[in-house]
Computed example of a mutant assay.
Amino acid sequence: MEIKTFHLGPLQTNCYVLSGDKEAVVVDPGGDPAEVLAYLKDKGLTVTHILNTHLHFDHTYGNKAMADATGAPILCSQEDLYLLESELGKGGTFGLPMVDEYTPETIEPGEHSFAGFACTVFLTPGHSQGSLTYYFPEAGAAFVGDLIFYRSIGRTDFPGGDMGILRGSVINHIFDLPPETLLLSGHGPETTAGDEKLHNPFFTGF
């Protein structure tokens, strides 16, 4: 199992490829996915799913191009579909480009399998109403989107955001993971569940 990180789009969103020998999933293609597609071709990997942690524009810029190139379904939470009708989902805000229209499929929280790997999907709202965390125990990694970052948390001032709900999502799901679990966020460096539980100022009373 291998995890490769790409920095895509105008906000340099972290896009991840989790792969085995032959199959892969792509998480949050937030810009032109040309370099991701080149990597997949070089490795001989077939994409089984495109996983969106949430549907803010900076995580979805590459959804359509990736889906068109691979034929893989785009998965998201039902609770985030409202964003497809807003500037936060369509793009165009802050003078940034519009998002090419795409058609996602919804996924329920619970146990799933992607690219042959077991995955637990948690509904972790707070940054958006339908933010999802994808936890792959075999990889010891959780793709958390903009829920939590190294020493920080996602914004809660956008429509659908809520600080109290976000804190609950982190405490009840992320901090319950094994402490060595890698947290792979939408922006910035990786960290671990245990490290953030001990040192993230939004949870330690700093």
Rank of each mutant, 00 (worst) to 15 (best):
M1R: 14
E2W: 13
E2N: 15
K4E: 13
L8M: 04
G9W: 09
G9T: 11
P10I: 14
Q12L: 12
C15W: 05
C15I: 09
V17R: 07
S19F: 08
K22S: 15
V25P: 00
V27R: 03
V27G: 01
D28F: 00
D28Y: 07
D28T: 00
G30H: 00
G31N: 06
D32A: 06
A34V: 03
V36S: 04
Y39M: 00
Y39F: 03
K41G: 03
L45K: 00
T46H: 02
T46K: 07
T46A: 03
T48L: 08
T48N: 07
H49M: 00
N52D: 04
H54R: 10
L55N: 03
L55R: 09
F57I: 07
K64N: 09
A65S: 03
M66K: 07
A67H: 03
A67K: 04
D68W: 05
A69I: 04
T70D: 01
G71D: 01
A72Q: 01
A72R: 00
P73M: 00
P73F: 05
L75M: 01
S77Q: 06
L84A: 04
E87S: 10
E87M: 12
L88Y: 11
K90A: 08
K90W: 05
G91Q: 02
G92K: 04
G95I: 00
M98A: 14
M98D: 09
E101H: 12
T103K: 10
E105Q: 10
T106D: 07
T106E: 10
T106V: 09
T106G: 07
I107H: 00
E108R: 14
G110Y: 05
E111A: 15
E111H: 15
S113G: 13
S113H: 12
G116Q: 12
F117A: 12
A118G: 14
T120A: 11
L123P: 02
L123I: 08
T124V: 11
H127Y: 14
H127C: 13
Q129T: 15
Q129R: 15
G130C: 10
G130K: 05
S131E: 15
L132M: 08
T133F: 06
Y135P: 06
A139S: 10
A139D: 08
G140W: 10
G140H: 03
F143D: 01
V144Q: 09
V144A: 06
G145E: 03
Y150V: 08
Y150H: 14
R151K: 11
S152A: 11
S152D: 11
G154H: 07
R155H: 12
T156I: 06
T156S: 02
T156W: 09
D157L: 06
P159M: 07
G160T: 05
G161L: 00
G161W: 03
M163R: 14
G164P: 08
L166I: 13
R167T: 13
S169W: 13
S169C: 13
I171E: 15
N172V: 13
H173A: 10
H173P: 04
I174D: 09
L177F: 10
L177I: 10
P179A: 10
P179D: 14
L182E: 00
L182W: 01
L182D: 06
S185V: 03
H187P: 04
T191F: 06
T191N: 02
T191C: 04
A193I: 00
A193Y: 01
G194E: 03
D195H: 14
E196K: 09
H199E: 10
P201N: 10
F202W: 11
T204H: 05
T204W: 05
G205K: 14
F206N: 15
F206K: 15
